[in-house]
Design a protein around this nucleic acid. Structure first.
Lengths: 78, 78, 78, 78
DNA sequence: ACAGAAATAAAAATGC
DNA sequence: GCATTTTTATTTCTGT
């Protein structure tokens, strides 16, 4: 049994993922900040989160409708 | 250190959960059967599953709308 | 070219599957309830789940053993 | 009794959070893509994830160590 | 039977 | 500390 690892490629991958994790952290931190500011201005965070969630669910639903249509098309071979 | 376990209660709990697992298994098996029958009648299983999923998503959306309204009510103390 | 879809059959199928999904949901909700009650009585949910899993695995194992035994018996005409 | 809602402010908040959610989604999608590419090149995704996690933990640890050192230095006026 | 995708379950982390 | 959310792990399902 032998294992060959391309260390150059691996290093590249890990660096890229690490940078993406940084991006993610930044976005998450930003959101946290916004929610905190909102709260300190008297907004109810739980409600805000629910509003956001629903907005995005609505948008998803439209995309899902399209996807279903596409599935029909494929199933019917049209 | 001492651990006291009410074995009577525990046994009761485990039995109940075990029965619920049986129920679950039965439902899952029934679904599998229906999907297999559907397939053998020429229906596309993947499409069927997507239809079901969307139907239930639509219904969930309605419930979520109500929940959001309720959240607003609570947030406003109405 | 003409495409014929048996909507009656389809509707029937979807309704049946939808009802089965309801059943499934009910069972899952029941389990959740039981686990929550168990927790509030001081039981460790994680451990409970492991116990249930093991119980059911053991039972499956026994059934498989029996099935194998039966297969041998038939093969040998015993 | 009267209820006043600053809709302008609210709308602004929701828009901003929605955009941040988009950013988040993009980053997560990118990560998924990278992991999939890595997998198709023979890398083990689970292991990759562990490596990233460890790297970041180590870095956090170092930063915390530095912060603690700084705290001491300040306390001692060094 | 097996690879890849999807679903479910379990564990961990976060916020209140 | 409890509950919700997020992440990770395992299992299941489907098409080849």
């Amino acid at each position: 049994m032998s294992i060959v690892i391309e260390t150059g490629m691996l290093k590249q991958l890990v660096d890229k993922l690490d940078r993406l994790e940084d991006d993610k952290k930044n976005v998450l931190d930003d959101m946290k900040t916004v929610y905190n500011e909102a709260k300190s201005q008297g907004f109810d965070v739980k409600t805000l989160k629910k509003i956001i969630k629903m907005r995005r669910m609505d948008r998803n639903k439209l995309e899902e409708d399209d996807a279903l249509l596409e599935t029909y098309r494929n199933a019917l071979g049209v």
